[in-house]
Design a protein around this nucleic acid. Structure first.
Lengths: 311, 311
DNA sequence: TTTCTGTTATAGTTTTTACCTATATAGCTC
DNA sequence: GAGCTATATAGGTAAAAACTATAACAGAAA
């Protein structure tokens, strides 16, 4: 197999019409060039040059091969250039997975911040349920994922980002909004709606019910936060909804009461997840820091920031 | 500088998602592949792969470089293929120079023969006066030339092809056509028209005049065979015209008498000319043989064949 | 003619590197 | 922990890419 060097040599000799001058320009010895040229000719099975004393010029076959040779070199240069811009790891396109219960409500707020900090970094965003995200990251289908904890897979790197409160939502008719705040003990006996069990929110709500004595209503399970909200509006029960969702989607306060549970630790934790061995993990840690910062500054009313534990 | 091999290695590892399997497919040892891959990564300044125990997969940067790598390899394969078809020297495009006094009358007869014998050979034909052709071949502007002898330049290879009689042409009114044949001695004192002195035909005619006592009329010199013919038609004198031209262009015998000079050696010799050092000289010798054959068979009435002296 | 000059090819060496075998290392599975 | 599998590292060999020196040769100049 020929080498890129040999093809470059071919091109240079064709341009200078002289092995001597080409060797000078390439900064190699003339015999080296003669030998390499002969090697390329042998490997191609074609005589490229007619060597005379005065000058060295292309044969008809060489003349027709020259454009092809230039193409090879040009493609190689293109690859080099691309590699150069990519050598700044923050200039690549990274595949980010997010769950549908988070992406639409969170990304519009953090993506601009990421782009202003890492101007040439691109995100290719795909939505999947958290359980799939986790597998997707482990298997390399995603480079990183923004998702709620906990994870099953131990081997992934996890940078915790923030705590998102879960707020109780009830229909206006239920009349629970005693000043917008309830005690945890008030939950006992209440019928709580939730998503189906493949969603992490389901596990979270289940745990809350166990602790407070509320009853998890499994007769009707939503398939998305939007359907869950509809079920509450229709008076089928109350539900816990993530604060970011409420902030984005509950535009008509007259329909629903949003109630904070006094003194409790009702929240879900979100993290940036990636393979621990990823060669660009340092970049991902920076991204995590950036998201933490952004959430603490711009969303202090809905989230509880986590201090940077990385490095 | 990287090598084509390394780029191929990159592509193969990306495809197999495993250094081990790629090494098998490439039929090299696994450590070799590891090393070469590391070398490529270093040369590009980019980490291409994330090596885990289970599999080896692309980094974001590697993923974006892979198409560029494939381009390089694809271009190289294209070059190889082209070289393969060109390795049959008769598959290239050869630049053929011909003089305007010969090309239009000769080429239509021999080009089809060449193409049927060398199917993939292409000719790029350019017309130039013979003196320029000779320089053009020597300097490499042409690969070969079909032209009348003699040449000035000694260093070129010359394959003589055939002798083309020069026939005397006179207007009908001149009344010279005594049976279509004259003796050389009849020429004495005649006023002979010719082309200007840059054409070889001029030298040839001059020599004839010196030998026979004819007078070379230098008051009116044609710039092409067609103008020379017109001058004869208009009664300005008689002229020697090449047999091939007459065969092609004198369609109205009532206008002109064509007269053969008995027993004389009035002819010009045509040859195929190329650089003696041309790597494809063997092909050109074959071409010369083919042209000789063709002329002997198809044009025996106008040309005198030359026996093959090559090899 | 001979000599000089400039160009490419060949010979002989050195250095580099691509490749091998053998072994270490580290996850994963049982 | 043992065994399996994947990649990395170490050490050595052989191929080849590089160099210097010189030969061969054509063309120009003396």
């Amino acid at each position: 197999m020929a080498t890129l060097k040999q093809i470059l040599y071919f091109q240079t000799v064709a341009e200078t019409q002289s092995i001597r001058r080409a060797a000078d320009r390439l900064d190699i010895a003339q015999p080296t060039l003669s030998t390499q040229l002969a090697a390329l000719e042998k490997s191609l099975g074609v005589t490229l040059f007619e060597r005379t004393r005065r000058l060295t010029q292309l044969t008809p076959a060489g003349r027709q091969l020259l454009p092809a040779a230039k193409q090879v070199i040009a493609q190689w240069h293109e690859m080099q250039e691309l590699a150069h811009t990519l050598s700044d790891t923050a200039a690549s396109t990274h595949r980010l997975g997010v769950p549908p219960t988070l992406g639409p409500y969170l990304l519009p707020n953090i993506v601009p911040a990421i782009h202003s900090r890492f101007e040439r970094l691109k995100l290719y965003v795909r939505e999947e349920p958290p359980s799939q995200l986790e597998i997707g990251v482990a298997e390399g289908r995603h480079d990183l994922a923004l998702m709620p904890l906990p994870l099953r897979n131990e081997s992934l790197a996890v940078d915790v980002l923030f705590r998102e409160p879960l707020l109780l939502v009830a229909s206006r008719e239920a009349g629970l909004a005693a000043g917008g705040v309830l005690q945890e003990s008030d939950l006992a006996g209440m019928s709580i709606l939730s998503l189906d069990e493949r969603h992490l929110l389901h596990q979270e709500v289940q745990r809350i019910c166990e602790r407070t004595g509320a009853l998890l209503n499994r007769d009707y399970e939503g398939t998305s936060l939007d359907t869950l909200r509809q079920m509450v509006v229709m008076g089928m029960g109350v539900a816990f909804l993530p604060a970011l969702y409420i902030r984005s989607e509950i535009h008509r306060p007259e329909e629903l009461d949003v109630i904070r549970i006094e003194g409790s630790h009702l929240f879900r934790e979100h993290a940036l997840v990636y393979r621990a061995g990823s060669p660009v993990r340092h970049l991902y840690q920076q991204l995590a820091g950036l998201i933490r910062e952004r959430m603490a500054n711009a969303f202090s009313e809905v989230v509880t920031p986590i201090f940077d534990r990385s490095s």
